[in-house]
Nucleic acid binder design. Structure first.
Length: 503
RNA sequence: GGGUCGUUAGCUCAGCCCGGUAGAGCAGGGGCCUUUUAAGCCCAGGGCCGCAGGUUCGAAUCCUGCACGACCCA
């Protein structure tokens, strides 16, 4: 192990501890109270006029102030912080000296003694016994905390280098409590989504991540290989086709919450693997899914944040249902001045887009050009908005509108200027589905690498009869961004993808 | 993929324009200090200045390339 100067000094302290008969990495812990429990126990005793309880607390040292023959330290555990008050008279010469010489910021320790209030009124453990639980060799970049003139808690030189925070997330979490809070909220959010679905007749299921044919979205897959079966396999880009097969199998409502993988660029709202919720429900449609989306997300906000008014970047997002519903052609015309319905082929739409100063790639199909126009509008869709009626060409799994087969019953949900969800009245006509797959095949031939592949087993399932149904997919990471007011998906992923770096 | 910016001590940063061989605060080390909470005071340390090359008597500083990251655009 290569050690720097600071680490070598701490290794020397390991020796000091062992010489004093104190094992730096013992197996047993004798904690009687968490930090929060100790504080509560003291306050309860104080209120009852009883003697202060004796406790043993355990945690990481996050602050030390040595004043001579007396010292103060704060330790932190999963419930919060508590102060240790150490006196030479209480600990004895040798243990007190060992504390001064061998205990550092970042060490996990155990301290026992009665609870007291110090002169400044802070509830503290007046330490009689002290053990090392795990000596830290590498110093954690603990910031200093202080209160400014207005009394706001400020931090001095906090560990904030974005790259290092992601590469060493453990250190980030250890020293930045607000980062821990992001992932706590994320977990509560996912729990709330599950609870709502479980309470509304959805069955949670698990479907293959390794798939012989990928599908359910427009994206390039990661490819892998099964050696024994001598078979190419894809990491799933969505759960859609496997979940809808289950409706053929007579489940009325199913959902899956898990990881999708898309072999595409990284951005503030894209990571190659991301978490998705997909749900499907028989005997409903696009409009049922709009209500489901509203109820589900509003419920999670109420449970996790206690409010429907979310501060997001410089905006306040109001999640109170019902949400705005606007047709795709209308929202695009509103934002760009182009009514794409007047330009029904790629050539004329491309010309019109260029005339208005928008980029339009030569090889882009009509459907993709429409999608490009939507991207122009996307950042302005801050309040929850269902954009509905999408071109069939870019929606091979959705049912066409009865009065306009060039469009399908599909919506995308936008909140905070991001696409959060996608839903259809699901296509359940096997012959139409076959035509769509063939159409996608032609698009692939024409150079669209994201075109949907043919899936004959899916067609076979549909031929047995698939009930009319609605489906909705929700980007969990982006919802977490919204709930925690983070502008980057990496802030809501514990281990975001980074390029490898030597050393 | 393109553009802009960044990378200096364990952490947070200054120094770079205008080249002369590296600084601060915190952390760490030694000392004083028996109620502190950014504790205080004194002393002494600590650096492949992202990597490689070029220009120059001399490069953290100027130039080129590369790596990694941030932001914007595609």
């Amino acid at each position: 192990m290569e050690l720097n100067e600071l680490e070598r000094l701490r290794v020397e302290k390991l020796r000091l501890l062992r010489e004093a008969g104190m094992e730096p990495y013992p197996a047993r812990v004798h904690r009687t109270h968490s930090a929060a429990e100790a504080v509560a126990a003291f306050e309860a005793a104080e209120e009852q006029g009883e003697a202060a309880p004796e406790v043993i607390v355990a945690g990481r040292i996050v602050g030390i102030r040595i004043l001579g023959k007396v010292a103060f330290a704060h330790i932190e555990d999963g419930t919060g912080k508590i102060q240790l008050f150490l006196r030479k008279n209480d600990l004895g010469e040798s243990l007190y000296t060992l504390f001064k010489r061998a205990f550092d910021l970042g060490d996990f320790v155990e301290a026992g003694g009665p609870l007291i209030r110090t002169r400044t009124g802070e509830i503290s453990v007046q330490v009689q016994s002290l053990r090392m639980l795990a000596k830290a060799i590498t110093p954690l970049p603990y910031p200093k905390e202080y209160r400014d003139e207005e009394g706001n808690l400020k931090r001095y030189a906090a560990f904030s280098d974005v790259e290092e925070r992601y590469r060493q997330r453990y250190a980030d979490l250890a020293v930045n409590p607000e980062v821990r809070e992001i992932f706590r909220k994320r977990s509560l959010m996912i729990r709330a989504l599950r609870r709502w679905l479980d309470d509304h007749g959805y069955l949670e299921v698990e479907t293959p991540i390794l798939q012989p044919i990928y599908g359910g979205a427009a994206a390039r897959p990661f490819v892998t290989y099964h050696n024994q079966l001598k078979q190419k396999l894809y990491l799933r880009i969505s759960f859609e086709l496997y979940l809808k097969r289950l409706l053929v199998g007579m489940y009325e409502g199913v959902y899956e919450l898990g990881r999708d993988f898309r072999n595409e660029g990284v951005s503030y709202k894209h990571n190659p693997e991301f978490t998705q919720l997909e749900l499907y429900r028989a005997y409903t449609d696009l409009y049922g899914m709009m209500e489901t989306a509203e109820q589900l997300i509003a419920y999670a906000a109420r449970e996790v944040l206690g409010t429907m008014q979310l501060p997001y970047q410089e905006h306040t997002v109001d999640l109170t249902p019902p949400w705005r519903r606007v047709a795709l052609h209308a929202v695009i015309r509103e934002g760009t001045g182009i009514d794409y319905r007047q330009f029904p082929d790629a050539e004329s739409l491309r010309a019109e887009m260029r005339r208005r100063g928008y980029e339009a790639a030569e090889e882009a199909s009509w459907g993709h050009l429409v999608d490009n126009l939507l991207s122009e509008v996307e950042p302005s869709l801050i309040q929850p908005t269902f954009v509905y009626d999408y071109p069939s060409a870019i929606s091979p799994l959705a049912k066409q509108k009865a009065d306009d087969p060039t469009h399908v019953e599909r919506f995308e949900l936008f909140i905070g200027g991001m696409e959060l969800g996608n839903a259809f009245t699901e296509l359940n006509d096997p012959f139409e589905q076959e035509r769509r797959f063939l159409q996608q095949g032609r698009a692939y031939e024409a150079g669209d690498e994201e075109a949907h592949p043919m899936d004959t087993d899916y067609l076979r399932a549909m031929k047995y009869g698939m009930p009319p149904n609605g489906g909705f997919g929700l980007g969990i990471d982006r919802l977490a961004m919204l709930f925690t007011d983070r502008h980057s998906i990496r802030e809501v992923l514990l281990y975001p993808h980074l390029r490898r770096k030597e050393g």
